Amino acid sequence: MTTESELQTDVPHAARIWNYWMGGTDNFPADRAAGDAVVRVYPEIAVMARESRRFLIRVVRYLAEEAGIRQFLDIGTGLPTMQNTHEVAPAARVVYVDNDPLVLAHARRLGTGSYLHADYHEPERILAEAELDFSQPVAVMFMGVLGYEPDLDVVRSIVSRTLAGTAPGSHFVLWDGTNTTPAVVEGAKRLAESGGVPYILRGPDELASCFDGLPLIEPGLVPITRWRAEGDFIDAYGAVGRSLGA
């Protein structure tokens, strides 16, 4: 179990900073200071945090209600907040994966479903230990987390190795922050300078390369505010791809 001393409340923590931007309460002064450093140069980060959850809700509802997906593998889930995957698709089997002991301790305290302590750099282990039936379609989700890996080739390898263990008819979901305006790039710089874990912002074309070989569900790779919605532009793109065997 994670103890108070292990929490390192005086050190900014990625999951708690995101929780702060989303309006949550599971954060500390160091997290809020790091979060505010970003907000000063990129106020839209709080909007992005909230819109990322709305994107998740729309995607999960589509997959559960229209695509018939009954299993979800949510990799790099972060701290449980409101409208988590298992709440949006209550009839589905959901396994959350995170490498952060704080996230797992918090999730277990809340009793929010099945959690696997693993790193997304270990896709074979995740596939072996996640309690899902991989002979049946599954939705694999990387929601705003792959920027912690600086090498795009490694990112693509993580995605392809994870999807290699899934059945035809499976779906792949990705969203991530993009380097599409100077303000968001400055925000990422301030986050690193304030002690937060550096996050690599990529271009939409780079994110699109993670979907190589996968047909995209309409409307394709777009700002997350415009995936089956009509929101304003935001520096975050997302898409849903479908296995060629579907």
Rank of each mutant, 00 (worst) to 15 (best):
E6L: 01
Y20N: 02
I17N: 00
D151W: 02
Q136G: 10
G78S: 01
N179R: 12
I69N: 05
G24F: 05
V159G: 08
T81Q: 08
M48N: 13
Q83C: 10
A49L: 03
D153W: 09
E87F: 10
D26L: 07
T180A: 06
A118N: 07
G35R: 02
F28D: 04
R54K: 12
D26Y: 09
Q8L: 14
T180P: 05
Y148M: 11
L207V: 11
T85R: 01
Q71F: 10
L7S: 12
D36V: 05
N84T: 14
H106Q: 11
L79G: 10
D212R: 13
R156K: 11
H121V: 13
Y199A: 11
V39E: 07
F134S: 01
A91D: 15
S135T: 15
P198F: 07
Y237V: 02
G213A: 07
A64Y: 14
V240Y: 02
G196W: 00
D176K: 04
T81D: 08
D10Q: 14
R226Q: 15
L191K: 07
D232L: 11
S5T: 15
V185Q: 12
E186F: 07
L163A: 11
T25D: 13
L79E: 04
H13Y: 13
Y120W: 14
T77H: 10
V159L: 02
S52L: 01
I224A: 03
I57N: 12
P12C: 02
P198D: 03
E122W: 01
R109A: 14
G177K: 00
G241I: 01
I158V: 13
E131G: 10
P150Q: 09
D151G: 08
A208C: 09
D232V: 06
E124N: 14
A64D: 14
V159A: 09
Y20H: 07
L116E: 09
Y20P: 05
T9H: 11
N179K: 10
R53A: 06
A107T: 04
